[in-house]
Design a protein around this nucleic acid. Sequence first.
RNA 1: CGGGGUGUAGCGCAGCCUGGUAGCGCGCCUGGUUUGGGACCAGGAUGUCGGAGGUUCAAAUCCUCUCACCCCGACCA
Length: 578
Amino acid sequence: MRTSRTLLSTLKEAPSEAELPSHRLMLRAGFIRRLASGIYTWMPLGLRIVRKVEAIVRAEMNRAGAVELSLPVVQPAELWQESGRWQAYGPELLRFRDRHERDFVLQPTSEEAITDIARSELKSWRKLPMHLYQIQTKFRDERRPRFGVMRGREFVMKDGYSFHADFADLQREYWVMHETYTRIFTRLGLAFRAVAADTGAIGGTGSHEFQVLADSGEDAIAFCPGSDYAANVELAEAVAPAGGRPAPAQAMQKVATPGKTSCEAVSEMLGLPLATSVKAIALMGSEGGIDGGPERFVLLLLRGDHSLNEIKAAKIPFLNPFRFATGEEIQKHMGCVPGYIGPVGVSGFKVVADRSVAAMADFVCGANDAGYHLTGVNWGRDLPEPDLVADIRNVVAGDPSPDGKGALELCRGIEVGHIFQLRTKYSEAMKAVFLDDKGESRPMEMGCYGIGITRIVAAAIEQGYDARGAVFPAPIAPFEACVVPIGYHKSAAVKEAADKLYADLLAAGVDALLDDRDERPGSMFADMELIGVPHRLVVSDKGLAAGTVEYKGRRDEKPSMLPQGEAVASVRAWLTPA
RNA sequence: CGGGGUGUAGCGCAGCCUGGUAGCGCGCCUGGUUUGGGACCAGGAUGUCGGAGGUUCAAAUCCUCUCACCCCGACCA
């Protein structure tokens, strides 16, 4: 490609709408342009990156035996009513009517449409297993689209669905996909980690997320450097402290703590470590999910330096679902204003202690008297044992790893892939059954596997950029190499050498860009760096006189010289994976 | 959905408080000089000041409503 023939629309200054580095750079580099909130045009250069990501994903999916098809973006409501998701899916599901007043949706994902295919086409065990996938536009009407294509409303996703005769075969495919995703993200050149994930509303027995590691990631990941344990913080287990509960050493005392309504403030005033305090969180919980029973007051206890994990809490039967209690409700059940509530001397509701709290002795907590806290509090002596001890907190760095192989560390990640064992949720709801080898009708076991294609582009930049622009791994850079001639429109020798170098690169299978614009060198260098081309070759009269071409890798500090005749072979070699 | 903020030329912004000729930088067009890190000189084009209504002799500026967008939070296959 020649720069003069493509649409290279770089900006010196980023539009003010962008905050995240990848978003700003994608706008500046001319990869995307916003059309509406969370909806972007992929400009020619950006689309090249998308296509390269797609090609790698497609190649590895095919290699793993999955088969590509394409499902409609617009799908009839009937299908969604059949699975129950017409009701269950919130306003993220974009619904609309056609001219005949029939309801339709824009696919946010396609379990229904694919299950419909499966039930009509896969009627015999002889046709199983079957793994079908598509790379397609998705739409989710996000409450708050943000960070450009990182969390847009319209995006491209690879979604695959596998169908199996039994659970064992689903598990086999699940691990094939685990391996395939590992190959994909490795080939994409990204630093990533596969982490155990919460299965969420979708249920099932197993789920892994593939997270690209980046400080700006929306997800927190706990991992153990001494083993392969890694889990989303939503899921990561906080194990009970080793050694159990120490014996009481102090008497319980009531101390005045006027105006100190937080564990931090109380600990600071008393000169005690934050980890010796207990914070009480008042919830209103009910049992039985969405249709739930009557709400009941529940008191949760966490160590002062810990935070509540709402997903874990919601797994307690009488807290599914829950909400935070209001000030009035706290006053009613505790007889005290928020800020000074505690578990001592209370009754009439359940008290749930985090594992770490249950192992504490001589702790500090609210006295249920405005302006006072208690110190030296001990379980069994000053208050009854909690009604329930559970893991309800977020793990913190330094916590023991659940596999016992060291201490956990935390990092942040961008979710770019997610694999699920769906089991029979959709096949049962939509009667996707097959005849097994005994002639019996059974629902198919299903797996589903997603990769956020467009999100990967943003994640790759988030993981690789500097002050000058994007720094792409070569496999997904918009171009692998560029030729920047100095004096292309002035020097016949430079033009001839640059054209030849460019042609030779193409002939060698290098995806090359020739900057044939009549621009000053500084402008051309700046643009090539902004769009993140990994390899740059500069042709100039000065170099030609010495028989050299200047080379500079995108991450290199200084350029170096290559003999003119070796430039193509060198670039070719650098692009070939070891 | 709650909180905060911003809408003025393609992009970044000033002007608004204190009403009176709509500005600056970059980009764009023409000509010239330049050509190894986003050049310089001269000339030029581009705005329903997000929209509607109101106050006023007069509104980018004051008032009301509205729309769009961004940030924080909550939410989330």
